[in-house]
Design a protein around this nucleic acid. Structure first.
Ligand SMILES: [Mn+2]
Ligand SMILES: [Mn+2]
Ligand SMILES: [Zn+2]
Ligand SMILES: [Zn+2]
Lengths: 136, 136
DNA sequence: GAAATACATGCAACAGTATTGCAAAGGTGT
DNA sequence: ACACCTTTGCAATACTGTTGCATGTATTTC
């Protein structure tokens, strides 16, 4: 509910506006990662660019993270409490090749790879693809 | 040289045409993964769509694999000999946030994750991002 | 070798997604 | 009320990927 959402936004130093509350709500109630277009579809008359900038604000403040699952559209999902999107906060994502849904595997951290000499590890995108339990 | 290239193409059941030889050569001599646009830039008057379809043919026959590194453009690199792009053939990729180059870490296999019950592992895209040794 | 056939290429148009400029609207503090 | 800053709406644009169709080139069939 609204009070809860505003609290989450303020925790991340994001001024709670009507738009932002709505976008947050959509991300929160869906249990999967959503693309800009999918978010847009859940409203009647909301501007794509406004949602776009809302997502940018969210991401800049680590309220959400983005996933590039290779489908052409970047998807977004809420971060866990206290997440700063550091290497230690990263988890694996799963794209179902059948239903096209992308899910956060929040309890599956991205493994730290032993990189070649003098290569730094700043972030990572690890997407596993297959058929999900629902589509099996 | 040309004979070698034709051999590689034929090994993958790809009819060696002039175009295909040229595209293969570009991918082979560059030691990094290239986007469609970057490949296009290495020629004077070659059609984007022709290169596109050439890459598609290459990929369908496991001569190359594609990498979505999150920069917006898919990149392509030669597969190892005998690769069938199965889960066992997959390796990690590295994107340098500074120079923008993407490299295959061919000796770093994508780790097999223990997925949730009834989720299958068909393929994966694992991109590590940071600063490469060159840009350090 | 000519005709028929299949395959490859070039050109142009289009689709999907992401991004920006700019003006109007809304909020905040004086 | 006013000045100031942020957010939103609208429109236009950029960028990448993809397709239809006509033409050209190779391969097969007779
Ligand atoms: Mn996630
Ligand atoms: Mn590779
Ligand atoms: Zn599914
Ligand atoms: Zn670099």
């Amino acid at each position: 509910m609204k009070g809860e959402i505003d609290k989450k936004l303020k925790q991340r130093n994001i001024k709670p506006t009507a738009m932002r509350e709505l976008v947050y709500e959509v991300l929160d109630k869906n249990k999967k990662a959503l693309s800009l277009y999918e978010i847009e579809q859940q409203f009647d008359n909301v501007e794509r660019s406004t949602i776009f900038r809302t997502l940018k604000t969210f991401q800049d403040n680590f309220l959400i993270h983005s996933i590039d699952d290779g489908t052409g559209a970047v998807k977004y999902a809420l971060c866990d409490e206290g997440c700063t999107c550091d290497p230690d906060d990263l988890h694996v994502h799963y794209l179902c090749n059948k239903c096209g849904q992308t899910h956060c595997l929040r309890d599956m951290p991205v493994p730290k790879m032993e990189l070649p000499q003098d290569f730094s590890f700043e972030s990572a995108n690890f997407v596993v693809k297959g058929i999900c339990s629902n589509c099996k």
